[in-house]
């Protein structure tokens, strides 16, 4: 395999607050190839969005301590200067946010905002930039792009605004696209349109996509590789099939058991995870998931309480942070998930 396009190593983001240090991202590593979609899955407070912002250089260094390494096509970004990161942002890497209404400027027309995004990175005339903008709006499926350039964000529906955001992110042909909950604020039929659009664009340009979401349906639809985050740490990292059919971390089991499925009728009871997510200020000493884990008693000698588990590879493309024995984990997974885990190895 070639060198990954994005390679994140031991990324750590800490915010000092009056109550103590918030360990928002606590040693996160993952990598993405071109033409590949990596999903970062987790609930509120798992650190998934902060990870994305740190990669994009969007976290104010005065308010946070960032350590670790982020390589974009071999170039290290954590130690790079602000100007260096800025020259890459919007050009080689771009980001789509959850809420397109608050990420577009309400006072400026769509055209003006798109032209500005081009001219930051390319020295071309306004007329030419407008042409590129119009073509891009057309490309992301916005009808009447010529007229839309003169519109303001409030003139557009939620789905259209998200398309404008995607168009803006794609203006300078980025090689990495980070999409932070890109469809969460949208209706399902619009979500389906946006997923289709992202997939088509990836096929066309070979973009590496990092998809941040809590929706396991969207992940199943789009991702090649999945990183599951909990309490600021990566607790499982595996290929899409392994995550859904052979997951090995109790938190991943809990997530999959919590999601109602549209293709399964009533009377199938959900199996939620008991308890609440941990406070990022006072993280448990051992495993972050220990307070909610129903299996910690299977591990001898209070290791889950005292010792922080490492993210250990169980195969070439699957790594798990858990003290349970691999054989034990497979047995429990097979029992919890039923046939699919048994069906194939």
């Amino acid at each position: 395999m070639s060198q990954p396009f994005l390679d994140v190593k031991e990324l750590r983001v800490q915010f000092p607050t009056e109550d103590g240090i918030v360990n928002a991202v606590d040693g996160v590593s993952f990598s993405v190839q071109k033409n590949e979609t990596l999903a970062i899955v987790g609930e509120s407070g798992s650190g998934k969005s902060v990870t994305a912002q740190a990669v994009m250089g969007l976290i104010n260094r005065k308010s946070a301590t960032i350590t670790g390494e982020v390589f974009l096509d071999g170039e290290e970004l954590v130690s790079a200067s602000k100007e260096q990161v800025r020259s890459l942002r919007g050009k080689r890497m771009a980001m789509i946010f959850q809420d397109p209404l608050s990420s577009l400027h309400p006072f400026y027309s769509i055209g003006r905002q798109l032209v500005e995004a081009i001219k930051v990175h390319q020295d071309i005339s306004k007329a030419k930039a407008l042409g590129i903008s119009r073509d891009m709006l057309d490309r992301v499926g916005i009808p009447n792009p010529e007229r839309r350039l003169k519109d303001y964000p409030h003139n557009l529906s939620g789905g259209m605004r998200q398309r404008v955001m995607i168009a803006m992110a794609l203006l300078n042909d980025p090689e990495l696209l980070i999409a932070d909950e890109p469809t969460t604020a949208l209706d399902v039929t619009v979500q389906a349109q946006i997923i289709e659009l992202l997939r088509g664009l990836q096929k066309e340009f070979g973009t590496a996509i990092v998809l941040i979401t809590h929706d396991l349906g969207v992940v199943a639809d789009m991702a090649d590789q999945v990183v599951v985050m909990y309490g600021g740490r990566v607790v499982e990292n595996a290929g899409i099939e392994d995550i859904y059919y052979r997951p090995e971390m109790p938190y991943t089991w809990g997530l999959l058991g919590s999601v109602p499925r549209m293709d399964v009728g009533r009377h199938e009871r959900l199996e939620p995870i008991p308890g609440q997510p941990p406070s990022l200020i006072r993280l448990p000493k051992g495993c972050v998931f220990r307070p909610r884990c129903p299996y910690h008693e299977l591990v001898p000698g209070n290791r889950c309480d005292d010792e922080r588990p490492d993210l250990v590879p169980t195969s070439a493309s699957h790594a798990v942070r858990c003290h349970l024995e691999p054989a034990q984990r497979r047995e429990i997974a097979a029992e919890r998930l039923g046939s699919p885990a048994m069906e194939e190895t």
Partner: peptide
């Protein structure tokens, strides 16, 4: 509407036909 809802099951999901409005 029902075809647009992604299923948390990659194999089933990727086989499904989707009606895009």
């Amino acid at each position: 509407l029902t075809s647009a809802v992604p299923l948390p099951d990659p194999r089933a999901e990727r086989k499904r036909e989707r009606i895009i409005l």
